[in-house]
Every structure is written in structure tokens, then in C-alpha cells.
Design a protein around this nucleic acid. Structure first.
Lengths: 337, 337
DNA sequence: CATAATCGTTGGAGCGTTCCAACGAAAGGT
DNA sequence: ACCTTTCGTTGGAACGCTCCAACGATTATG
């Protein structure tokens, strides 16, 4: 039973040298004789030696780990962002410690505390629910970047997001371009991202002279809430729906079809996010696509930058979303419902 | 600039006690006077003290972290399993360190090495690609549980999986029950899980006296590979397709519809996994559903059990999949294509 | 009243590393 | 022949924490 792992000391005695030399050899120092190096490497291999990262990080005061908080793993958006983070971060010799937050902001704070105890060198928060104040406190302590939100400012906190207002306007523009005017927005509930998208909807509607047609139906960001919100939306007799995100849009489409209406013939639906399943022909969802993996990649780059220079000025990067026209939107019917 | 974090020593001097007492007080020992405890707690709060997990784990020789390796974050199956792992593990005061493996098995091994350097107390491998030998070496060193595979045995390695052969048979049974006989299997490529599902398909076909109809078209586990494999499958003029997993099934359906055939009227399609998006009405995929979150939960329970008793006998838990009939399968057409 | 037990507290050792100052031996320069 | 440099190597301190043995002061026991 290899119950206690071999330490550097075990390797040293086996190779007949001092532990210092083992450390030197294993970190690839040039000032170790070839003979010693070989003996050390062999001894380490025979013993199955693996350096203890906790001990190392204690002395070098670096953990080479960055913490990632994800709101909800079920939403594929976040998995795709995470993937971008992961690949970028790994290339620079860092690991990620992942926490998926719960619904409760207090729990979220506890999770972050735990990450900080592990001495993560940076924090990437993907769609969190923390109050601005708590966020600033965290950012003051450790390099932090927020993904998908940029409404909170702190001197040393970076953000990477897409311009939700602009994206929402693109959605409405597309719908109007297809001849729609009775365009209802299914909101994503009470959070900054959804607020911005609703705001973009209002702006674009107003700009197109459709201020009188503005209707925001409260909903959520999940399949179920999208499904449920359709009932209220249909009462407004829309010809098109702009839904706050793709997942909810898929739920909405289900509900529309359940009500014996066709998409897009009777009602056009456009989502937001650009999750990959939306691109599967089975789903075929028209959407405003964010470059999700890029979002993750950029977040990783920002955090690495700030780790190297903690006092760098706050950077708020924006990526631009693009309209992806697929099968759930079409021209308005000649005889409106 | 709070560049160097306060240590236990800082708290001690501020509270006017020794660092030992601080340690005692903060770990909730009863042998600390109320007066001292209060002073210590206050001092810690004022300083924003946060214990250094690396230092602690060095001395207590426990990291309270378990490592999770995920093959591919893009497949929603894994996210759902991970979610189950996460909630269970957290309840027991553990954290997770997540790595999403690449395509390259060598890279996977490197990732695991890194997890081990961080002194994770256990390893949960969700759909890995490691050779049996490497796996046994790892299991000998640290508690390990494999999710979604049970073909490799090691004395101290647990597995949790569903019975893929039985599940695949259920799929075929369902199709046969709908009158199908020209049932083609789109395989998931060359990996143990896909092999088992193909094997179940063959067994069931044989059992139903359809041995002559057995056709396995090589494919993969992604949307794109499912889409691509349909071309070969259609050449066999099937009335039903059993696809190795849900994601590929969605790709397959897209390809079928692109070929101007209808699902399920012309061709029935059944998948495997039970990912949640399959349940969205927009997708509405008939499938063999694994209890994914349960899979994750069980894996977590096994790892925790083994952490407490490293020499426990290997446990191979199986969960049972269930047939979920939705809209992509139906009775065979009276005039077969 | 002396001794023993209890209480709250403390210094120090040790966890597995890295890194620095310093070592002796060999090689080079004069 | 001596002094200096270079090379390979080493012991020990430090990182921040926990835990143990031991402390003095108070309280209980005989």
C-alpha cells in the first residue's frame, strides 16, 4: 500500500544526493551534472514521485490555478464559454478550479471564499449574482474578470461581454426587415443581461416608430420559463417573438407549436446567445450569436494579463454578436393573426 | 495595496494572543475563552483574514478536493453528470477541480498528473480515453471512479455506469414493437460505450429473428458525425435508426430531413443518453435515458466512501436506463420505402 | 495546607517544497 | 606555487498552517 506518497527527500536518499539537488534537477536547472541528473530522474520515476503542489505553492507563493465560477452548468452557453477559458488558460500552464454556483447569492459568496482559500491567482466569474459591493471587495483582493456583464465598474476588474443592447437591436431590425411590427419581447427576468436586451428591444422598436407596440412579457432564461411565458405573449397577438436567450426561445417555440401555431409561418421567433445546439438542423433557431468560445478565451487572456500586472487599468472588452438567420424567422404573413 | 495576504500570525498579534490560539479559536475549539475568541474573530474580520488552504493541507495531509476529468464539455451529457457530482461532493465539504481532457490520451495523462500534484483525494473520470494499464496505475495511487464505463477492473477502482447492452436492447425492442424490421444502427465509433451499445443492438436483432437485417454504420458521438453517417445509412433503406447517442441522433435527424424524408413518418430515430435538450419539444427526441445526475451523484458517493476506506472492495454500480418515447419514433409505414 | 486536577494559553516542531548562502573540489590564471 | 574562478553540491531557513507537549494560574481534592 503506497499510502504515503514519496517526497523529495525519498528521491534524494535513493539517488544518493541532497534534496536541494533533486529540486534543482527536476526543475531543469543547467547546473546539475548529467550523471546526477540521470540518477535523480531514474529514482523519481522508480518511486513514482510527484511533487506536492501545496508545498510548492506555499513557498513560491503562486498556485498557478485560476478559479472559475459558473452560474448554471445546464445552460450550454456556459459550457461553451468555459471551454474557451480552459484551452487558453492551459496553454499558459494554469489549471482551473471550477465551482458551479447555486441560486443563492450567499452560497455563491461561500464558494468564492473557498476558491480564495485555495490561493487561486485569479477569478473568472461567468454570470454571477453578486452585489456590486461584494464584487468590488473581491476584485480588490484578487484579479477578477466578469464574463457576460459589464455594468459594474471597479478599478482593477476587467470585463468581457457582448453589447447586449446592440445585439437586441439587431434582432428587432431583422424582424422589422421581415415586415413584422407586432413584436413581443419575452424577457429573461430581473438581471442585468436581460435588462440590457430588453432595453435594446425598446430602443429599436422606438426607432422604427413602433413605440406603441412595445410589449415586454416577463419570463426567464430556461426552457421551462420560456415555455410558460408564451401564454401571456400570445394574448398580445404577436407575429414575432424576440426571446431573451436561446434556451428560453426553444421552450417558447415548443409552447407555440403546442398552441397549434406554426413557426415561422404564424409566428417568427428569434433567440439570443448562439448556443451550438441551436445550429443543429433539428432546432434550426435564428439567433443573435455571441462568439462564446472567444468570450472565454478573452476572459482568460485578461486574467493572465492582470496576474502579471495587478495594477493595469481596467479593461472592458466587448465582442460583437452576429445575426444568424436560420429557420425560425420568416416574413410576416399577409393576413396578420 | 493588500498585496500580501494577512496570515494567522497577523491576526494573532492584532488580537494580542499567540498564533496557536488563533488556530484553535478559528477551528471552533471549546477550550478557548469567550473573551479571546471574540477578540480573535474580530481581528480576523478586520484584517480580511482567510486561511491558506495550501498550508493547511500540507500539515493535515488532506486537500478536501476531488479531481474531475471530463472528456468533452460540449456534449451536454457530461455537464449534467458533473452537476450531480458537484452537488453531492459539496455537501460533504469537498471542492472539485475540473479538467476537460483533449482528444489526445497523452494530454489526458498529463492533466491527471497535474490533478495528482494538487493532492486531490479522489479522481472521477467521466468518459476518459486512458489505456487500462494507465488506469490501474492511477487507481492504485488514489481513489478513482470511472463514470460511463465498466469494462476495466482494478481492485480499488469503482465504476458507475448504465447497462449499455440492456439499454440498446430496449431501443431495438421499442422499434420492433412499432413494426420496424429494417433497423440500422449508427455506431458511436471505436470506444467501449459505443461497442456495448452496438452489441446490444446485435443481440436484440438476433433475438427478434432479424439477424439478417443487422447493419452497423460507423459514425461518431457528435452532431456532425451523426449527420455525416446518415448518407451511408440511407443506402440501406432503413425504416428506423438506432443512433449511439442523442447528440448524434439530432445530427442524423437533420440529415434525414435534408434528404427530404420525414421523421418519424418515413424513418424513426431513437437516440441514447437522455440529455435534457432532447426533452425540449423543439427536439422531442425518443431516447434511452440514463439518469445522468444520479450517475454523477453515485460517483461522488463512491469516491467519498473510498476516501474513508481505501481498501474497500471495488464496487461497480449500475443504474438502469429507461425508454422515453417522444416524437421521433412511430409505427412503420404500411408501404416501406 | 499541600497536592492534584483543570483551564486557557503558548512555543516549537513539522508538513514538502524552493531558494539562498556557502561549501569543497577541480580548473584556470599569474 | 599560490590565488581566483567556476562547477556541482549542500544544509538550512522560510512559506502558513496544525498539533502536541508543556506552561502558569486557578480551582478542586484529601
Amino acid at each position: 500500500m503506497a499510502h504515503s506518497r514519496p517526497t523529495i527527500h525519498d528521491v534524494a536518499t535513493r539517488a544518493g544526493v541532497s534534496k536541494s539537488l533533486v529540486s534543482l534537477a527536476l526543475s531543469g536547472s543547467p547546473k546539475v551534472s548529467d550523471a546526477s541528473r540521470k540518477r535523480i530522474v531514474d529514482a523519481a520515476a522508480e518511486l513514482g514521485y510527484r511533487p506536492n503542489a501545496a508545498a510548492r505553492s506555499l513557498v513560491v507563493r503562486r498556485s498557478h490555478t485560476i478559479g472559475v465560477l459558473i452560474l448554471d452548468l445546464h445552460n450550454p452557453v456556459f459550457a461553451e464559454i468555459l471551454d474557451g477559458v480552459q484551452t487558453e488558460v492551459r496553454q499558459h500552464g494554469f489549471s482551473t478550479m471550477l465551482i458551479s454556483g447555486g441560486v443563492d447569492p450567499a452560497l455563491e459568496q461561500a464558494e468564492i471564499d473557498m476558491l480564495l482559500q485555495f490561493q487561486v491567482e485569479g477569478l473568472i466569474l461567468i454570470a454571477h449574482r453578486l452585489p456590486a459591493e461584494a464584487l468590488r471587495a473581491i476584485a480588490a483582493e484578487v484579479p477578477t474578470v466578469i464574463v457576460t456583464r459589464d455594468d459594474i465598474a471597479a478599478p482593477t476588474m476587467d470585463t468581457v461581454s457582448n453589447d447586449d443592447i446592440a445585439g437586441a437591436r439587431m434582432a428587432v431590425d431583422h424582424l422589422v426587415g421581415q415586415g413584422h411590427s407586432r413584436i413581443v419581447h419575452l424577457s429573461g427576468g430581473d438581471n442585468p443581461v436581460s435588462d440590457a436586451r430588453a432595453e435594446g428591444y425598446r430602443q429599436a422598436m422606438t426607432q422604427h416608430g413602433l413605440a406603441a407596440q412595445i410589449h415586454v412579457v416577463p419570463g426567464g432564461l430556461t426552457d421551462a420559463t420560456g415555455y410558460a411565458a408564451v401564454h401571456d405573449a400570445l394574448a398580445l397577438k404577436p407575429t414575432a417573438l424576440f426571446v431573451a436567450n436561446d434556451v428560453a426561445a426553444m421552450g417558447a417555440i415548443a409552447a407555440i407549436e403546442y398552441a397549434n401555431l406554426r413557426v415561422p409561418e404564424d409566428i417568427s421567433v428569434i433567440g439570443y446567445d448562439g448556443i451550438s445546439i441551436g445550429g443543429m438542423r433539428r432546432v434550426n433557431l435564428t439567433t443573435i450569436a455571441q462568439p462564446l468560445a472567444d468570450l472565454g478565451r478573452l476572459a482568460a487572456q485578461q486574467i493572465l494579463r492582470r496576474i502579471n500586472d495587478r495594477s493595469a487599468p481596467a479593461q472592458r472588452e466587448q465582442v460583437s454578436a452576429t445575426l444568424v438567420i436560420r429557420g425560425t424567422t420568416g416574413p410576416v404573413a399577409v393576413t396578420p393573426t
